[in-house]
Amino acid sequence: MHCQTCGDVASPVDPDCQRCGTPFGQPPVLPGVPTYPVRGLGTAAAVAVGAATVLYLPGALFPLIGARMARAAAEQGDRDLLLGAAVAELLLGLPYLLALLTAAVLVIIWTWRARKNTDAFPGALPSLGPGWAIAGWLVPFANFVVPARVVANIARDSLLRRTTPALVGVWWAAWLVFSVGDRVVSRGDDQRYSRLTEWPQNDVEYGSYVRYYQDALGGRLLLSVACLVAGISFVVLVRRISAAQQDRLARAVPAWPGHPGWPASATPAPAVAGPDAPSVTSPPPPAGAGGTIGA
């Protein structure tokens, strides 16, 4: 006997598949359990995450341009260049915020669908309910742990793994560094910018703007690396999980509706003419242990 999910040979001593954990004799997808398509949504989420990752970089690397504009302002004595630098940095951040909001919505919906699909996978052992696929991103403090646990469950049950793929850990570690570090760096930059002279009068005051941008660059470079690692690894995860789930859903065989204890049939029973033909709304009754009545 082979596992209907991954094709591995059955073990005579273990009722579950050693590779994917599916109980032998079970179909790849349980009939009657709702499932949801994830390939298209996963592609949209991956594109949005990739766009947010790329759009973060211009704002993060703006101190390179800001320092040059501050030097030019000092040489020309032009305060408007400093104001222009602040406005340019603000405008560069707007597309990133829009992409981030779009990515957040799509990722939450994709996570919920992917988690719901695992309820239909025999042998899946999720530790958190589907509701946490949404609440885990929104509840304070829980969002430091819960999303990683949900995605880890989805990855194991979708990619036929007994252990969590290492890519989940890479993604979550990079995301925590980025999300927490971005708040710390942004707060520090705001505090240092508020201490700058609003209308510089001399080289020392102009020079403080140059030093501000130079000091801001180091932390933002680290955040850029973390953002790239988190974005790329999550896109890979979404694509792999979506493809694996869609492939498994496509291999599901339609079964007659009935009691979960009834054996599933790969194909519908042939039609029988006459008054003894079975109804299309119910499967033929399973054979009992004692054989046909009257035999």
Rank of each mutant, 00 (worst) to 15 (best):
G84E: 03
L64F: 12
P200N: 10
A86P: 04
A142E: 03
A133V: 02
T53Q: 03
L55D: 02
P63F: 07
A44E: 07
G129F: 06
L222F: 12
S194M: 12
N143D: 09
G21H: 00
P275C: 05
G25L: 10
V235I: 15
L237T: 01
Q201D: 15
A67K: 04
W172V: 01
P28F: 01
R161A: 11
A277D: 10
G93A: 13
Q18M: 12
D119S: 14
T292C: 09
S279V: 09
S282F: 08
L128K: 12
R79Y: 14
A52V: 11
A86M: 12
L41Q: 05
G274L: 05
A250W: 07
T163K: 12
R156V: 00
L64N: 09
R251K: 10
P122T: 02
P147I: 06
T111N: 08
A216F: 04
V185D: 02
V9R: 13
W132M: 01
I109S: 07
T53N: 05
L55Y: 03
A216Y: 01
T111Q: 05
A174I: 04
T5N: 14
V105I: 15
A142K: 06
A166D: 10
T22D: 01
V146T: 14
A166Q: 10
V107W: 00
P12N: 06
D276M: 10
E198F: 13
V180H: 03
L228S: 08
R156G: 02
I134C: 07
G219R: 03
W171C: 03
P286D: 07
A120N: 02
T102N: 09
A120L: 03
S186K: 04
L83A: 14
A155G: 10
N117A: 09
G188E: 11
E205H: 09
A289S: 10
L82H: 06
G131I: 07
L159H: 04
A74Q: 11
D16A: 13
G25P: 06
A135P: 05
S233N: 05
V9C: 09
A103T: 07
D80S: 15
A135M: 12
A124N: 07
L128P: 00
A152L: 04
G231C: 08
Y212L: 12
R68S: 14
R183L: 14
Q246E: 15
S158Q: 02
R240M: 13
P275R: 11
L81Y: 02
P23H: 04
C17H: 00
P283C: 06
A135C: 13
T197C: 12
A88Y: 06
P12E: 09
V229S: 03
I232A: 14
A166G: 13
R79T: 15
D78Y: 08
A155R: 00
P23S: 07
G207W: 02
A152I: 03
A252D: 02
L223H: 01
G207L: 08
R192N: 12
